[in-house]
Design a protein around this nucleic acid. Structure first.
Lengths: 335, 335
DNA sequence: CTGAAAGCGCTAACAT
DNA sequence: ATGTTAGCGCTTTCAG
């Protein structure tokens, strides 16, 4: 006897069909929009379903239709305000299209392939990489999951094989150089995040190229070993302690906002806030904090997210870089 | 002909069985640990599977086993550093147990019931609420999804019906009162977040009760209409502008860290940083920023997360509140 | 340890 | 518009 099961929710379409006095397949139709069914039959089915507490089992449906409506979203650097913003907007956009996000948290970088493979076995309809630092071999990864679309969002990846959707980092770097030059700076610095990572090189190249074209040079490159405010703080404190005001650069572009905060913290701690122009990248919400007032660059998040979702729905989306825009606040000004 | 399909990954257990020279059921066994199968047969199957690029379809498996290994994680306030931290640890913990998180982003509070119902139809094995502000009727919601476990984590909810796992907010409030009293404060304030929300009342009650027991009163209650740093900033600026130093409270406890940052921003903007003791709640990573150095209260995140995951695996977990601990930095000191 | 029958709950494609 | 056949790909009995 099936009533033996503890859980009472074992109502299937058969029972609904019996109660409604129709066939099982009519029940199926009643729950699928755009299928031919008389209004009367539909009402009968819906009523019967409600009485019995019937809800279609979407797993079984997926097994037949070969569509789950679930997209795997792979994230590596979770505790990062920018990632959070992206994840928020991405899940919202997916849901608006009736899709759901299966969140994959990459803790150990080596496990990416396994995690993605598992998602694939779960029959997800696509995979979206929202990685901040991931350096994995995407090409070989992509080949593992040919069955479904794979898109890499918000990271440099000079490949054409998997679909890549990203901010135009190169132009962004140029814009920032221009802002700083116009502000009267004569010497320039840059702080990179985790080094050896090729995901953000374009940003720096645009900055450096534009400086050179205008007769300047990149005089200082500092390296925070991670996208960590405190590491950046220490690195910049070190710089401040080893230099005198005369020797320091006039302006510094930070690979992202988090690093910029650390730089500003260091300047504040050394009582020389405002002596060096600081610019970040990402425009995370904290950037407008009155204690930082960070001038930064806002990636075209909404547009890229929309494109990312489109890539999951149709297969005619091409790899794209898109311009964002400068958000000019106070931190790039020198007093 | 099935080879008509564009996607080549249509390998099923039948083909593997043929190539390995065993039956289809033996293939199934080879991919399920703990099933009786001879080592030789398993090797043959695994080899054949590899050659054909076969991977079990987990959807079909779930349909048979009535287990998907997917847990719905419902979040309402996404762009909140604390939520991010919880989500990071939660997904990591779930994955460690072989489970995956289906992330549900509640944009419109009214849609919670529908979203959860959909997750239920997707046959998720459980639902975890990580809501910060959600005020929905959890009892009626819980009744909709009796089939699977539901747990409310990290929010007050004086109910016993759905499983509730939370920080001991009441005791935390008392601890903070004690810290501030010991610091010599004589007058006390509190800033609430979104009002009308009952999710954090215990925090305030513990604070107020302890103050009263020690002969003090809660002299000021300010209200930020949201967990937003800038709203808190404005609210506190307003307070500072309407009062003189003499009239102000000595200490203020903020419902969470984000609000505390706004308060500190306001104090800094009015050049009176250090004149009022400030304490936050959550210990988000930004709290240790050199520009804030926030004294705050760290919830027992790891422990509660572990309990949450346990609740998904077994059904003998009881509703629990757990003590966290005070993280004493600088912001509670007055100069 | 391995094979076979039956079925998980639904839907595509076709027939009526 | 509705009913029918034949599966989706795997696992659970239970027999051998």
């Amino acid at each position: 006897m099936k009533s033996n099961k503890i859980n009472s929710s074992k109502v299937t379409s058969v029972e609904v069909a019996e109660l409604a006095g129709v066939s099982r397949w009519t029940v199926s139709r009643a729950f699928t929009s755009g299928k031919p069914i008389s209004e009367e039959a539909r009402q009968r089915v819906l009523l019967a379903a409600q009485q019995l507490g019937y809800k279609p089992n979407l797993l079984a449906r997926s097994l037949s239709t070969h569509k789950t409506g679930v997209i795997a979203v792979v994230v590596d650097t979770f505790q990062n305000y920018n990632v959070m913003k992206l994840l928020d907007q991405l899940t919202a956009a997916l849901q608006k299209h009736g899709l759901r996000a299966l969140l994959i948290n990459v803790i150990d970088e080596d496990s990416v392939a396994d995690l993605v493979e598992h998602a694939d076995q779960l029959q997800t309809d696509g995979v979206i990489f929202l990685g901040a630092t991931l350096t994995g071999d995407f090409v070989s990864l992509a080949s593992k999951i040919k069955r479904i679309p794979l898109v890499i969002s918000f990271r440099d990846c000079n490949l054409s094989e998997p679909l890549v959707l990203n901010t135009d980092d190169y132009t962004a770097g140029r814009d920032i150089s221009e802002l700083l030059i116009n502000g009267g700076a004569l010497s320039f610095g840059y702080i990179v995040g985790p080094s050896g990572i090729s995901t953000r090189v374009n940003r720096r190249e645009g900055y450096e190229d534009h400086l050179k074209e205008n007769g300047f040079t990149l005089d200082l490159v500092l390296s925070a070993t991670n996208y960590d405010q405190f590491i950046a703080y220490e690195v910049f404190c070190d710089y401040l302690e080893k230099t005198t005001k005369k020797d320091r650069v006039d302006a510094i572009f930070c690979e992202n906002d988090t690093i910029a905060f650390g730089v500003i913290d260091a300047l504040r701690a050394h009582n020389c806030l405002g002596s060096i122009a600081v610019v970040g990248f990402d425009d995370i919400s904290f950037a407008k904090s009155p204690s930082y007032n960070l001038t930064t660059y806002a990636p075209p998040v909404t547009e890229l997210i929309e494109l990312t979702v489109q890539a999951m729905l149709k297969d005619d989306v091409q790899s794209t870089v898109m311009k964002g825009k400068l958000v000019v606040r106070e931190s790039h000004k020198r007093k």
